[in-house]
Nucleic acid binder design. Sequence first.
DNA 1: TCAAATAGTAGGTGTGAACCCACTATAGGG
DNA 2: CCCTATAGTGGGTTCACACCTACTATTTGA
Lengths: 150, 150
Amino acid sequence: MSDAAPPSLLGLSTYLLSLTGKAARGRLADRLAERGLRLWHMAVLAALADFGPHVQRALANRLSLDPSDVAKVVDELAVAGHVDRVRDAADRRRVAVSLTPAGRAVLAELDAEARRVQDELLAPLSQAERADLQEMLSKVYARIHSQSAE
Amino acid sequence: MSDAAPPSLLGLSTYLLSLTGKAARGRLADRLAERGLRLWHMAVLAALADFGPHVQRALANRLSLDPSDVAKVVDELAVAGHVDRVRDAADRRRVAVSLTPAGRAVLAELDAEARRVQDELLAPLSQAERADLQEMLSKVYARIHSQSAE
DNA sequence: TCAAATAGTAGGTGTGAACCCACTATAGGG
DNA sequence: CCCTATAGTGGGTTCACACCTACTATTTGA
């Protein structure tokens, strides 16, 4: 039912990135929402899976997320049984967060879900193109990330 | 200051798209904000420039924006002198929205601004890569758009 | 000519994200 | 032993975005 969008916008990669990014984010978020999760939950689970247990402060740094927001996300994951929180015996201020087997299993499902979203979203691209896209986005991301790290 | 992000997320094009899209959107929005504008203002100006005057309902269809939100955006653009609103003589319910010369000039500046953002964001890519990216994103967008149009 | 449909608009709702402050508990250095 | 820094947490603010509802003015068609 919608008419054609303005070509002068569609000629801007910036604009297309913003639109496709929103679509990607939205679709992934929808799948996560079916399990009562949001993107940050997945990000935390992924960080724990990739790098092992974290103190919350470290999670905040790695994910560029506010410590108080980390606390909330971790709390929700703990309630769901996806992570364990154990207070550090040596430094009782710190809380070590680690993945439970259930959390690892959920993450695997979320990853599969994400790949399904990806297949659907990138359907018009050939396998070679998808690889190129991944490569280019990685470069772009690397620059963004290093800049924000300053 | 930020540590490395989880590789299992960065391996997902979905996730990279979402991140880079957010960066693109954010940076562009920042530039627009300096002029007191938001992305929808630019979208409306672009639609008027590309397709000529629109009745508001047509703008809403073209941009997939709620009619009541179109009214607000158009109202702000009219106050700023970027668009004219004239009531249709034949059908006095309708309001034709058209670009003023000032609006056209502002749009040109916004476009230049967007291209600067783009150059900055896509700096790690060669010219050929940027063209490929644009091409791929166009395909992906076309699919998204046709789906939402159903 | 009257009922239904349509264009525009004012105002409000819900949500998610990003941020920020205050507070408690704990640790560590001088 | 105290002063400062740090980890975690609860609470709240702000903002943009998408959406929805109610209402007025106007047109159209039976």
